[in-house]
Design a protein around this nucleic acid. Structure first.
Length: 437
RNA sequence: GGAGGAUUCGCCUAGUGGCCUAGGGCGCACGCUUGGAAAGCGUGUUGGGGGAAACUCCUCAGGGGUUCGAAUCCCCUAUCCUCCGCCA
């Protein structure tokens, strides 16, 4: 959620942000009105409650005097007490009514506030999905024709190597499921270990987080808005399967106040990710590029808001370092405003070259959520200026299935074998080549 | 799944219907003292809402209730602990 004070002071800025996202901007005016009503209700309740407390404070002493009073003053005191209690009873009614009104106004404001997406970073390109800007292209794309190689896609290579079993994935779990088998399974472990090692070397704390979370964690990270249709919900237990370790890593410090001096706090989580892929029917149906479940190593930072932009650049830097080490050509794009998630103010994707498709495809993504998630999850920091929300950022180190797609395809050889990039060899027992069975 | 117990300001704790407007200790911060430190003494130390401010309200795990008035009494929920059962 955004800061209500900012909404009051500069509603135009919020409207502009909603517009750039292609989202409803009328919510802004409704929210301004609701906030005003809430504050008025707060004042009435506070005043009445104060009156009630003052009255209440007089009851005790009066009862004491009545107890010790002689017969002559008793009737007068008793009458006074009765009058006091009668007044208090009447006041109690009004306090209760005012409290109910206050709570209702509060709930209304909170509900509207939850609808608002994060303010976009003015630096983000404006527009829809295709309006991204290319930041940089990195690496050299192989000329397979010149090498005399007929390009196989990852499904073919995966079969040759005995690395991916899609048919049996479908048999057991349905479409968009797979087994990683043999060298494929080892490849996942190698990628994960390599990623975790890179992160740990840069001061991240490794984490194995729960992949099943309560509604509050899902809501707090902003996945129950427009993204809700892509989330698996376990009806019987009112729990959610996470689509990314970002969820448990963000909720990890919910309701906490962190010392500003301890920031940035960096965690790297390895978890399964579950996505319903509603609305993507028919897209990327072949292979393991778009699946309902995959494993992922995700970086997560809790940062000082003033440091968030720099931290975002650092996360992107580590993502790039990882794909550099895999010797896979890629480009970095600055995602356009209309394609940002509800929580993100700005987002950079790394898109790896996929030879079989002859285009770049998303393999990682890093978002600066500024204070948006932190407000929802009540994560704050304490510094000289007091207590206030901090910034959260996340970035993929490796989404295993997509990395495998890029790796197998970019490093394939004429005979269907796959060259192992140097950086990965230590994690595969020194193997330099994956060969067909 | 069953039976008990617990949950108060970072930590420990007092508190069984009205001077609890939540007390004390530890820790922490600042000050006094000191050549410097320790000790000692003093002051401060949960968050949040409203308000320009004075100030005011909320916050004793969360939610409901009883009452003129709830940390305190009642009900529900959550989490943790102990024991039993079941399972790995």
């Amino acid at each position: 959620m955004i800061d209500l004070r900012l909404l009051r002071d500069d509603p135009d800025r919020v409207r502009a942000s909603q517009r750039a996202r292609g989202e409803d901007e009328t919510v802004v005016d409704r929210l301004v009105a609701a906030d005003e009503a809430r504050r008025a209700a707060e004042v009435s309740f506070g005043a009445l409650r104060n009156e009630q407390k003052e009255l209440g404070r007089r009851v005790g002493p009066l009862q004491g005097r009545l107890k010790k009073a002689g017969d002559d003053e008793r009737p007068a005191l008793a009458a006074e007490l009765d009058a006091l209690l009668a007044g208090a009873a009447d006041l109690a009614e009004r306090v209760k009514a005012a409290e109910t009104a206050r709570d209702a106004a509060d709930a209304e404001t909170t509900a509207l506030l939850a609808e608002l997406s994060n303010l976009i970073d003015p630096a983000a390109p404006v527009g829809g999905e295709d309006d991204f800007t290319v930041v940089e292209e990195v690496g050299v794309r192989r000329d397979f024709a010149a090498e005399g190689i007929t390009v196989r896609d990852h499904v073919e290579i995966g079969e040759l190597l005995g690395a991916i079993d899609i048919e049996r994935g479908a048999k057991v779990s349905g479409s968009r499921f797979y087994y990683l088998t043999g060298i494929g399974a080892l490849l996942e472990l190698a990628l994960v270990n390599h990623a975790i090692a890179l992160a740990c070397g840069n001061g991240f704390t490794p984490m194995i987080p729960p992949a099943l979370v309560k509604p509050s964690a899902m809501e707090g990270t902003g996945f129950l808005g427009q993204a809700a249709e892509n989330v698996y919900r376990l009806e019987a237990d009112d729990m959610y399967l996470v689509g990314t370790a970002e969820v448990p890593l963000a909720a990890y410090h919910s309701d906490e106040i962190l010392e500003a001096s301890s920031l940035p706090r960096r965690y790297v989580g390895y978890s399964p990710c579950y996505r319903r892929e509603a609305g993507s029917g028919g897209r990327d149906t072949r292979g393991i590029f778009r699946v309902h479940w995959f494993d992922k190593v995700e970086m997560f930072s809790y940062a000082h808001p003033d440091d968030a932009v720099a931290e975002h650049a650092r996360l992107l830097g580590w993502e790039r370092e990882f794909f550099d080490s895999l010797e896979i050509p890629y480009r970095v794009i600055d995602v356009a405003s209309g394609d940002l998630g509800a929580s993100a103010a700005r987002k950079f994707d790394i898109e790896a070259w996929v030879p079989s498709q002859e285009r770049y495809r998303e393999v990682t993504s890093t978002s600066n959520c500024t204070e948006f998630q932190a407000r929802r999850l009540r994560i704050r920091m304490r510094d000289e200026d007091g207590v206030r929300p901090l910034a959260t950022l996340n970035g993929t180190l490796v989404a295993v299935t997509r990395a495998i797609v890029a790796l197998l395809e970019n490093h394939q050889q004429a005979d269907g074998s796959v060259r192992v990039p140097v950086a990965l060899r230590p994690y595969l027992g020194g193997r330099e080549l994956l060969t067909p069975l």
